[in-house]
Design a protein around this nucleic acid. Structure first.
Length: 433
RNA sequence: GGGGAGAUGGCGGAGCGGCCGAUCGCGCCCGUCUUGAAAACGGGUAGGGGUUCAUCGCCCCUCGUGGGUUCGAUUCCCACUCUCCCCGCCA
């Protein structure tokens, strides 16, 4: 959430910035609620001070008659205060609710644009892979090798689910283990393994709620939601805490499954494993000193890039425009790798700088070294990387003419030295009925 | 799921319905003393909000959370959440 004081003091600048996001933020309503709330609070607090003083003198008054009179007056005063308190509570709740729906403001250097078409390619790495044979899309390769079973995935869980099998499952596991080792051993991250089910408040902290509940799976009877990304539980680890400044920066990396209830339109991204309701991801999360978030953002991007470079994958870097930033980020850089067989760029990482937007929602602060009031930390996160699409890139960029797939050098130690993924022992096609 | 105990400041641990935002101990910070340090001694040490240009100050709220009783609740009543112990069930 953005600072209420900022809205109060420079509403026009805020409105102008929000306009670049195509957001329907009710700034005028917030200003009205804020003014009303402060007037009510000031007034009511004066009455409370009077009541507190009065109640104390009741205790000191010995004369029974005078005492009775005071008690009657205090009772009336108390009733008035209670009524106003109700009013304050109502206005306060409305104000808070409205603030939670205001998106973060973009940093000044973020290009203005309506949607992803205005994103800017800022760098390209690696040559476009050239094959001496027609490159196949991963669903053909994987099906032929028997490393992904699409039919049985759909049978047990419905459309958009698949089953990794044999070396397919092992390849993903190798990728996960290697990525975690890379970030923990080379980039200074501490690994965490968080719950996949979280409370509503946790999702409010990262900005997923209250606005985007329709993209989430949840338990119908309890307040338990499936995480759409590890960012949610990991960022919220320090919710409602005041950290020592010396503890910053905090770097965490987590491997989790992710669950997203996307309204997947028929005919788009239907083939293969590019998009589904469940996918795995290795996620990096940083909590840092507010003066350092820009620098940490650049480093975060580099750490995600190190995964692609280690795997030897061709990729490019995109600076997202205002219209594609999402709700919580003030700045975002995406990494896309090339799906050589299906012929498209795949987003495998999205590195966001959230400034104090999430910290304010989740109330994550630090105590400055020399003492003083607690301040909000800045939060950042980025995938390092999303598994299905990394799998796609590996399969399609490392495919060979005979339909087998070479194993990237760095993964071989994780696969017992195996250099090639070939056909799996036959199980046969699914025959139902 | 059944039974019992508990939830107070960074930690430990008190708290007759008014003098308690809270005794005390530890920790931490600042002084005095010391060549320096320790010890000793003195002082200070929660968060949020309102008022203020800001500081100081003043005021309001917070003793797990939410309600209730009362002129007044950390203290009484109810509900919920969480923690610990015992029994049952279980990967």
């Amino acid at each position: 959430m953005i600072d209420l004081r900022l809205i109060r003091e420079q509403p026009e600048q805020i409105k102008a910035a929000l306009a670049t996001l195509d957001a329907d933020a009710p700034i005028d309503r917030i200003l009205a609620l804020d003014g009303r709330r402060r007037a009510l609070v000031t007034e009511n607090e004066a009455l409370k001070a009077e009541l507190n003083q009065g109640s104390k003198s009741v205790g000191r008054t010995k004369d029974a008659e005078a005492r009775q009179g005071m008690i009657v007056r205090m009772r009336e005063l108390g009733d008035r205060i209670a009524a106003r308190d109700e009013e304050v509570k109502g206005v306060d709740a409305e104000l808070h609710e409205a603030l939670l729906r205001v998106p973060n403001l973009p940093l000044p250097h973020v290009p203005v644009g309506p949607d992803e078409s205005a994103n800017v390619v800022v760098a390209e790495h690696g040559a476009m892979p050239a094959f001496s044979f027609p490159a196949k899309p991963h669903w053909e390769l994987a099906e032929a090798l028997g490393i992904i079973d699409f039919e049985r995935g759909i049978k047990i869980s419905g459309s958009r689910f698949y089953v990794l099998r044999g070396d397919g499952a092992r390849l993903q596991r190798a990728l996960i283990a290697w990525m975690l080792d890379l970030h923990t051993q080379r980039h200074g991250y501490q690994e965490v393994y968080p719950p996949y089910l979280v409370l509503e408040q946790t999702l409010v902290g990262t900005g997923n709620l209250p606005k985007f509940g329709d993209a989430l799976f949840r338990d119908a009877e309890e307040d338990k939601w499936l995480i759409p990304t590890a960012e949610v539980p990991v960022t919220n680890l320090y919710r409602e805490e005041i950290l020592d400044e010396a503890l910053l920066p905090i770097y965490h990396v987590a491997y989790t499954a992710c669950f997203r209830r996307e309204q997947l339109s028929a005919g788009r991204d239907v083939r293969g494993i590019k998009r589904g309701y469940q996918f795995d991801k290795v996620e990096m999360v940083k909590l840092v000193h507010p003066d350092r978030s820009s620098e940490e953002h650049r480093r975060l991007l580099g750490e995600a890039e190190a995964v692609l470079q280690g795997l030897g994958l061709t990729y490019r870097t995109l600076q997202l425009c205002t219209g594609d930033l999402g709700f919580s980020a003030a700045d975002k850089l995406d990494l896309e790798t090339w799906a050589a067989g299906s012929g498209e760029w795949l987003e495998v990482s999205s590195c966001g700088n959230f400034l104090d937007f999430q910290a304010r929602r989740a109330n994550i602060r630090y105590r400055p070294e020399g003492g003083g009031r607690p301040r909000f930390v800045h939060t950042l996160n980025g995938s390092g990387l999303a598994l299905p699409r990394t799998m796609i890139a590996v399969m399609e960029q490392y495919q060979r003419e005979d339909g087998t797939i070479a194993v990237p050098e760095v993964l071989r130690p994780y696969l017992g030295g195996q250099e090639v993924i070939g056909p799996q022992p036959p199980i046969g096609p699914a025959r139902t009925g």
